[in-house]
Design a protein around this nucleic acid. Structure first.
Length: 671
RNA sequence: GCGCCCGUAGCUCAGCUGGAUUAGAGCGUCGGCCUCCGAAGCCGAAGGCCACAGGUUCGAAUCCUGUCGGGCGCACCA
């Protein structure tokens, strides 16, 4: 891990600037550290002298030289040089650097600013519990779960919540499907749930209901409204059926997500937010603070509304008085029913510990690791449950189309006097998953050749129409393909082991694929591309680690050298291979790159951009592949050289394994 | 109309708070490498006025303004 070195260097240089140029700490420019293009120039460098040139009225090169000659000593740094172009470069003490890292703890230490801040809540997945999960939901949970892992790596306590909208239109529609279209009784629905892939069954049924509505909206949509009403009020059969459906579908989703190595601490049910009157509580606060008011005239008469603050200052003169009229968002409808935004405000208040009410809690299921998975409930529940809510930071992983609502959420927090809560509420937004034209054709959902849709770069998926790639189908296909490849290469493996490995590879392929694009980009999902286990893919990185493991195992067998013995011996043997005296910097360059994981994670959390992590892991794997092709380990005759190379193999293997773990990817024993 | 996002090699994309001769990957194309730690691999070649125009800066793919393309959002739906 490299960040401690960064911190030491920055502190030292900052101190140097104050004594050298009498710069007050406030005047010192931020000290940017980066990596010179090659190891001969240095290991770390800073363009600081350019920054100071104007203020000090000196040439950058002269400044760099002054700093270099006054540099003194910093632990772990053995050299400083002022490059001809004005860069200031540092050389690290290589042997202790590598030995420290091989011996050091796995995680990073929490930096001061984060240490006492409290826990973070990450909400992700939140699939409507009325049909099977699809590829778009996978992007959400892959991003959300990676965020969780990355925050934990940083030392931040995290609570993972999955929000279940069990009282919404989508569930109501499936109830309508069962009751009105199919004429099924509750018992018959139970029988169907017990004897079919229920999430798949509902997927089709939901599409049929949507189509049926379209046939005669006037008459048929009333079924939806009535059912919705029943569900909201409870104590009737429709409500019981809706609860049953939601429960069963959520269990399907959890299974799908478990395949993806995605796990949760708590399921929060919208129904409980309603029944426990979270909204009423939040509503009182909003009213008391004047954040919402009752509109008495115009088209929104009778609604409780929240004024919408525009970001831009109104362009004063240019606007007509009528147009400058304030915009309003309805929070409570004129019929007294709260909107989605209202419920979400209450939920967000609770997440931040600002509501003053809590759920009851029950155990819903067992998690893959054997711990209980908790869910909210309205009454009863266990007395002895972990504490939930009341977080210092909240990340809501929701697609970009909800940006507007998420903005309103923050406004509500500001309006009730909690600007810091708004500050600490993050909308982790990301773009949609669509289908490539090739894949749409393959699935038989291609748009008509001369339609508008055919001209677009990708084909939209639609849960309502049942168009899209179901998550489990995709995972099945990936596993099957991976299994065939594994079988080809490892004929001696038994079926069970082959399947186990194939699953690891398949998951690596999807998860990496869903992470490697920046989140602001629409993914045009292409089956063939996602199935590819070559090139920039999860399996490529797994392969590098598997090779590293193999190589080191053979080192152990052939030379009787275990890890501990190897590491101890490194203290005393000649280090020419590491220090570059043998004419190549390859080994050191690889070690230095491998050490940057913590820096990358830091950047990932700052930017919430996981493509950075994906690219880093991939290019480290690439460097490693190139390294062992060029630098033999088992066949190397010089003992000290072999030991250093083996040490590098261990370090890179460990760092890559950690990087993969952050992406929810495990390392198979062979592949 | 207003707001947000995107526009980098044939295709799909990286390029973080602006910085170091040739702007990087993957796929595809072309050419090499399995008696030598597993070829899901490695090495090499071709391929780019970083949408366009201004500006800021010692220095811009990166920051600012504008233009043009494309996507999404702006419900008493969630």
């Amino acid at each position: 891990m490299i960040l401690p070195v960064h911190d030491r260097l920055r502190a030292h240089v900052a101190h140097l600037l104050t004594s050298l140029y009498a710069l007050a700490p406030a005047e010192t420019p931020p000290i940017v550290l980066d990596y010179p293009p090659n190891r001969d120039l240095g290991d770390l460098g800073t363009p600081l002298a350019f920054e100071l040139a104007r203020r000090l009225r000196k040439a950058p090169k002269a400044i760099a030289q002054e700093i270099a000659s006054a540099f003194g000593t910093v632990e772990g740094v053995v050299g400083v040089s002022a490059a001809a172009n004005g860069y200031l470069n540092f050389f690290l003490d290589r042997r202790p650097f590598l030995l420290d890292r091989l011996a050091g703890p796995a995680g990073t230490t929490l930096r001061d600013e984060a240490r006492f801040a409290g826990k973070a809540i990450v909400e992700h997945t939140a699939i409507n519990p009325n049909k099977a999960a699809h590829i778009g939901h996978l992007r959400n949970s892959a991003l959300g779960d990676t965020l969780v892992r990355v925050l934990k790596f940083r030392g931040i306590p995290v609570e993972v919540q999955n929000y279940i909208d069990d009282t919404g239109v989508q569930v109501a529609d499936v109830v309508v499907g069962f009751r009105v279209l199919e004429g099924k009784t509750f018992d018959e629905i139970r029988a169907i749930a017990d004897s079919t892939r229920f999430d798949y069954f509902c997927w089709d049924l939901y599409a049929r209901v949507t189509e049926w509505y379209d046939g005669d909206k006037e008459a048929r949509l009333k079924h939806r409204t009535d059912t919705l009403h029943d569900i909201e009020h409870g104590g009737n059969e429709n409500a019981d059926i809706a609860a049953f459906i939601a429960d069963r579908i959520v269990r399907c989703h959890l299974k799908t997500m478990a395949r993806m190595n995605v796990d949760y601490d708590l399921l929060t049910w919208e129904g409980d937010i309603l029944r426990l009157k979270f909204w009423a509580q939040a509503f009182d606060v909003l009213k008391a603070k004047g954040a919402v008011y009752l509109q008495t005239e115009g088209r929104l008469a009778g609604c409780w509304v929240m004024p919408i603050q525009e970001d831009e200052e109104p362009k004063a003169q240019s606007q007509e008085p009528e147009e400058a009229e304030e915009r309003e968002k309805v929070i409570v409808r004129s019929n007294g029913v709260v909107t989605y935004v209202g419920k979400d405000i209450a939920y967000q208040f609770w997440k931040l510990g600002l509501l003053g009410r809590d759920f009851h809690y029950r155990v819903f299921a067992l998690r893959p690791n054997g711990d209980p998975l908790w869910a909210t409930c309205s009454t009863g529940g266990e007395n002895d449950h972990p504490l939930y809510g009341g977080a210092a930071y909240v990340y809501n992983v929701i697609d970009v189309r909800q940006s507007y609502l998420q903005k309103l959420l923050k406004q509500a927090l500001v309006a009730v006097g909690h600007p810091e809560g708004a500050e600490r509420s993050h909308h982790f937004s990301y773009e949609m998953v669509a289908l490539s034209h090739a894949t749409a054709r393959e699935l038989g959902v291609a748009p008509a050749p001369d339609s508008e849709d055919a001209k677009r770069p990708f084909v939209e998926v639609s849960g309502r129409k049942g168009l899209g790639v179901k998550a489990d189908d995709l995972l099945d296909t990936l596993t099957r393909n991976a299994g065939a490849e594994v079988g080809k290469r490892n004929a001696e493996l038994g079926d069970e082991e082959r399947l186990r490995i194939a699953q690891m590879i398949g998951i690596a392929a999807v998860r990496y694929f869903l992470i490697k694009f920046s989140r602001g980009k629409v993914i045009a999902f292409d089956l063939e591309e996602a199935l590819s286990f070559e090139g920039e893919s999860g399996p490529y990185i797994q392969y590098a680690v598997v090779r590293a493991n193999n190589i080191f195992q053979k080192v152990q067998q052939r030379f009787g050298l275990d890890e501990a013995a190897l590491l101890t011996s490194l203290k005393d043997i000649p280090a020419g291979e590491l220090t570059g005296e043998h004419g190549t910097q390859d080994l050191w360059a690889l070690v230095l790159e491998a050490s940057r994981l913590d820096e990358v994670v830091d950047q990932v959390i700052r930017s919430l951009e996981f493509s950075v992590l994906a690219k880093y892991a991939f290019s480290l794997a690439q460097s490693f592949n190139a390294f062992y092709h060029r630098s033999p380990i088992l066949n190397e005759e010089r003992d000290d050289v072999r030991r250093w190379r083996a040490a590098a193999v261990i370090y890179v293997r460990d760092q890559l394994t950690r990087a993969l773990d952050l992406m929810g990817i495990t390392v198979p024993p062979r592949m």
